[in-house]
Design a protein around this nucleic acid. Sequence first.
DNA 1: ATGGCGCCACATTGGCGA
Length: 258
Amino acid sequence: MKLAAWNVNSLKVRLPQLLDFLATRTPDIVCLQETKLEDVNFPRTELEAAGYQVVYSGQKTYNGVAILSKAPMSEVQIGIPGFGDEQKRVLAASVGDLRTVCVYIPNGQSVDSDKYRYKLKWLAALTGWLKNELKAYPKLALLGDYNIAPEDRDVHDPVLWKDQVLCSEPEREAFRELLGLGLKDSFRLFEQPEKSFSWWDYRMMGFRRNHGLRIDHILLSDALAASCTESRIDRDMRKLERPSDHAPVIATIEPPRD
DNA sequence: ATGGCGCCACATTGGCGA
């Protein structure tokens, strides 16, 4: 089965590209970030017509997350339990024994900002919650826009970005703490091309010059990582007309045959 | 070189993203 995550940067604008993605890539589960839609405006009808069940938690202008699944979803959780947050950034749902957690981790703006301090607090809350979630659901996938480039090889110009937001050491430490819960970065389970990124600035021909960062990730619990056969970044979606500034990331899970 | 692009809204400019 194919799991995908995509920051669409406005689902209203990107619905045609999303429908194209669903039809051509045929993912089983898709986690969306930055839908920027209130729930009343979510394009439920169009996505159901495309063959997907949908759950979503959105707001006007900013943030907003959704999960699409071909198979029925249950045990839907909105937000991090016990962490009061008006920003719609977390959504979890079960598909069979697979627990899917969709996250839009805060950007942080700059390392000296209140938004950065919120980001680190938010990450600590996420990690605390997932520790319990993993006990309840051994087969867990954490997908989304992490707004963290885990290592220098995930950055087009590590010197330029050194200690900047998305690359700072506290953020990278928070990412490693997620791995420490028993999660694997699916992308790094396999050989990958040099300079693989998932986001490129709209400005200054960022995509054409491959001035990007790898900040969108699919982390898999050890139980799932063992049956992951592929993980890749779908760069082609960034080449279309009116693209999101993020490319989708896709991981394939095959049940072990024995 | 501190802008540049794209999206959004109490819009025709400013906030934000990354």
